[in-house]
Design a protein around this nucleic acid. Sequence first.
DNA 1: CCAAAAGTGTTAGATCTACACCCATGT
DNA 2: ACATGGGTGTAGATCTAACACTTTTGG
Lengths: 247, 247
Amino acid sequence: MTESELAAFLNSSNHYLPQISIDCVVFGFHDNQLKILLLKMKGLDVWSLPGGYIPQDEDVETAAMGILEERTGLKEIYLEQFGIFGKKERYTKPFMESFFKKNNIQVPENHWTLQRFVSIGYYALVDFSKVNPTLVNFTEDFDWYEINKLPNLAFDHDEIIPKALQTLQLMLDHKLVGFNLLGEVFTMIELQSLYETILGTKLRRNNFQRKMLSLGILERVEKLYTGAANKAPYLYKFNDKVKNTEH
Amino acid sequence: MTESELAAFLNSSNHYLPQISIDCVVFGFHDNQLKILLLKMKGLDVWSLPGGYIPQDEDVETAAMGILEERTGLKEIYLEQFGIFGKKERYTKPFMESFFKKNNIQVPENHWTLQRFVSIGYYALVDFSKVNPTLVNFTEDFDWYEINKLPNLAFDHDEIIPKALQTLQLMLDHKLVGFNLLGEVFTMIELQSLYETILGTKLRRNNFQRKMLSLGILERVEKLYTGAANKAPYLYKFNDKVKNTEH
DNA sequence: CCAAAAGTGTTAGATCTACACCCATGT
DNA sequence: ACATGGGTGTAGATCTAACACTTTTGG
C-alpha cells in the first residue's frame, strides 16, 4: 500500500458503511488438521481474522467475498454468515491506535476507524492447496493455525472463532459442506479425518465409508499409489449430483 | 408518540448506529397455527416486521430485545440471529417517504432514515397467550398472520420471513426450541401440531408421543377435561432439566 | 511371506414405522 | 352402550455399532 493509497483509505469514511465491519473465519484442511487463516498486522504482536469494511455501493456478501478474494486469491468461495458481534463496548480503538502509533500514522482523535463497530461474522471453506494468500494493506504476515493451537488474538476474535466452528459443526449434518475443504480428489481416509477434526470425535473407518458411499455422491476415480507397503486407497471425487446442488 | 417525541426521533441520527437496522420475525402458536406478528404503519397499506435501530450505547442483542419488549410486552424472549440482509440497493427510502408524506411530516432530503440500511434478522419465539402487543410510534395496527397467508409486505420482508422459518426448522432438531412457543402446560397433541406446522409435515401420533417422552424432558401434570366425549388428555410441562439448559 | 493399511461381511442392538389394540369420557 | 379421541403394545424394517475377515501393496 502506497502512501497515497493509505491517505485515501484513512479519508474514506464516507466510502464505507460506518460502524459496520466484516470478519471472516477461513477454514482450511491440511495435514489432517482443520486450520484457520490468520493475519498479523505490522508492528503488532497479535493475530487477527481477515476482515474489512463494506463499501456503500456493494452488497454485504459481495464485500465479504471481496475481502476473501483479496486475501486468498480464490474466487467462488463457500461463505456462510454465522453470527454478529455487537456488544456496545466493542471498539477496535486501542488496537487501531497502537497500530497507528507503531507505524507513525497520524489520525485525528475521532477518526472513523476508532468508533464502535458491529461486526458481521462469515465463515469460509476453502481448498487449502489452492489458497495463495497475499499480503495486502498493513498485513505483515499470515499463517494457518490449528483450531486448538491459536496464537494471541485481537479484539474478540477468540469469541468469534468458536462460534464459527460451532456453526460449521451444525451444518455438517445438514449440508454437504465437506467438499469445499478438499481438493478435486481425495481418499476416504482424508474425508474421514476431515469429519473427525470438524466434529472433534473419532469415527469408525468401516462404518464411515459405508455411510458416505451410501449417500450416492461419491465417485471412485483411480487408485493412489503412495509407495507405501499396503493396499492403495481409491481416490474419490464428488459426482455431478453434488455439484449442481446448492450447498 | 407526541409531537416533541417525533421531532426528537427525527433528529436522533447520532443516537443510533447509522445504516443498520434490526428486523424481528416474531413467531407465535395459536389455534394450531404458526403465526407471525406484523405491524401496519399509519397511512400505508403494507405490513412490516417489528424493527428498529440500535442505540449507540446498547448491545445489538439488547436493542433487539428492547424492540420486542416494547412491541409485545414480554421480557426474556427467546431470540436468535438468523441472517443479514445487506443488498446494496436495500433502501427503505420509498417506503419512508410515502409514510412521511401521508402523515405530513417534513424531513430533509438526506434524512438519516432514507439511507441504505443493512438489516440484522432476529427471530423470536413467544408464548402467544402472553403477548400483549402495544401500538407504539407510528404503528396503526398489528395482527398475527399465518405463515402461509401473509399480507402485502414492506421492503424485502417477504425474503426475510422464509429465511427465518428455514432457520427455525433447522434448529428444531438440535435445540429444544419448541417450548418457547407454548404455555406453561400443554397437551401432547398441541406439541405435536406445533412440530407439524413448523416442519410442514404430518407426524404419527403414537410415535411422536413415544419419542418426546423418551427424551425425558416432559413431566405429566393433571388431565385436561374439556367436556368432550372422549378420554381426557394429560397436560405436560417441561421439567427442570430443560429450564436450566441453554436453549 | 509378512506387515500395514484399505476394503468388505456380518451380526446384535437400537431406532423407526406402521398397524392394532386398549382406555377414558360424555351423551 | 357407543362414538370419539388419548394412550400403549408390538412386529417388521431400517439404521447403527462393533467385531472379524479378506485384499492389496512394497519390502
